[in-house]
Amino acid sequence: MDVEAEEQFRRFVEGRSLALLRTAYALTGDRHTAEDLVQGALAKLFRHWRTVDDPEGYVRRIIYNDQVSSWRRRRTVREEPVEDVPERAVSDGSAEVDGRLDMTRLLSMLAPRQRAVLVLRYYDGLTEREIATALGCSIGNVRSQTFRALARLRTLAPELTTAVPAAPTIEGA
């Protein structure tokens, strides 16, 4: 890679890394895993820098894809969501800061795919079709996962009911 291209890459990383890292953190729930996920995706981008027309779109799709691949690899060591939320994890609704902390913890208590559909839908703002493409599943599966994720959120934290949609938003509706 020539100097100019490398400088362009560095500018891209400088400008977009925080947003990418936040998405990865939301997906993984772990700061170090998120950094590794993003840096791995950026390394792949660096290798193809001259041929990729939409760097951010490419990196995000690599992040999603690598995260899905990690779920597949972990299937042999089955990952189960926590069934019961410790009482201290539930907000008492007294302060927004508690709500923030609860959301991070609540996300970690969802199954990986449920967490992913929520993050992609409500954090990254993707459409159901885009989420299906990103996660390699059907739109119907996205809807069902979203429904279950929202239902579980309401179960885990009843006080968040007003913030959580009763049903997944239907695209185009």
């Binding site: 990383v13 890394s17 998120a34 791995g40 929520l118 954090y123």
Partner: peptide, 29 residues
Amino acid sequence: MDLQELLRESVDGQVRDVPAGFADGAIRR
């Protein structure tokens, strides 16, 4: 505050910066 805002506030509050040398790390890989 709706779910989108809660998520943003929660995630953005937990990740406020990027480690130094992030681009260098990617390039070193």
